[in-house]
Simulated scan of single mutants.
Amino acid sequence: METQAMEAMEQARRWLSDQGVVEAGEGWVEADRPDWPLTANDVAHSWVDKVFREESLTPTEQLWLAFGLLDLLDDYWVTCVIGSAYGDADRPLPSDVLWDGYRRRLEAQRDAEPVTYSLWVDWFEDRDTAAMAFAEVLGNDIERVVTERSDALLRRADRVLDNSGPVPWSIKQGTYEIAARLPALHGSLFQGLLGSYHDVYGDLEPKPALALLMQLDLPEDTPHLAQLRSVLAAGHENHYRSPDAWDDAAASNA
């Protein structure tokens, strides 16, 4: 993955250079305006969408170039442009390439914050895309994750579970239950359950969520563990539907 990422970044760097954009110190400049510094976010907003107008590139090549720009710029806006281009019915992009790009970056050792944030707010919060996205980045592979237990697969699972709060319970419950077989994933499963309760778009069913929570091998002093047990035992589905329940649980467990 790291070699491929480096190659993708070099391709992206060459492409930006062809557009007249080059690195300068810790930022960027246009070659004809070297005294006007640009941030990575400036570059992302101004140039990434042009990738998908490069008619000399196939849709697959466009996607790989865009992912190279994501690696190079490390900016969330690149994922927004990729998502928008993916939704363009006039020139559809290949789903397998899109999700392979996400999976590779979720498995990489380097920070994946733009990718995880993209999953959380763009793909998982949208009821039209949550099932597909969750299946592609974890649901389809969860048995392999639990069986193989490689560092890369565990990194991907941890990152997805941490941000899976908005995914509908009916979609993620089976994946959660399989993940619970592996103690190494119990911490991220807890974060997933916590997000399922606290996120504005979080989704869970209290009874099975509590049963799952009770299976997790967590230190008793894990922050918010006692409160989550209490609100689920009381049948609460979401913090925003019962805004006082969490404070009441905190007080009773003090």
Rank of each mutant, 00 (worst) to 15 (best):
N163G: 13
D49F: 14
W120A: 03
V21D: 00
A31T: 13
S242P: 02
S252E: 15
Y201W: 10
L138D: 01
P223L: 14
T58A: 11
T39A: 05
Y76I: 11
E30C: 10
P114N: 07
L16K: 01
R110G: 02
P59A: 03
A40Y: 09
V146L: 04
R103L: 08
D158G: 11
A131I: 05
V137I: 00
G68H: 09
N253W: 05
M9H: 04
R149P: 03
R103I: 07
F52R: 04
A157R: 10
M9F: 03
M9V: 06
V231D: 00
W99C: 14
V48N: 10
G174Q: 02
L204E: 00
R103S: 14
M214V: 12
L161S: 09
T58F: 08
T222D: 05
D96R: 13
P94N: 09
W64M: 11
D35I: 06
E220T: 09
F67L: 08
E143F: 13
N238F: 08
G165C: 06
L63D: 01
D90E: 15
V160M: 07
G20C: 01
A245H: 06
W99E: 11
D244Y: 05
L218E: 06
E113R: 13
S242T: 15
V200L: 08
S188N: 12
G192I: 00
M132W: 11
L73D: 03
G20T: 03
N238S: 13
D96H: 10
V146S: 12
S84P: 01
D49K: 13
V231W: 02
G235T: 00
P34N: 11
L185M: 05
A5C: 12
L212D: 00
R149I: 02
W15I: 04
S46P: 05
S230R: 14
P206D: 01
E107W: 01
M1D: 12
I142D: 11
L216I: 06
R241D: 03
L232W: 01
L93G: 09
P183V: 00
E220W: 02
P94C: 07
G27W: 10
L225Q: 02
A8T: 08
A226W: 06
N163Q: 14
G195N: 13
H224M: 10
A180V: 03
W120C: 09
Q215S: 11
Y240D: 12
K207H: 02
G235L: 04
P183A: 00
A179T: 07
G139R: 03
N163I: 13
A180N: 03
G235I: 04
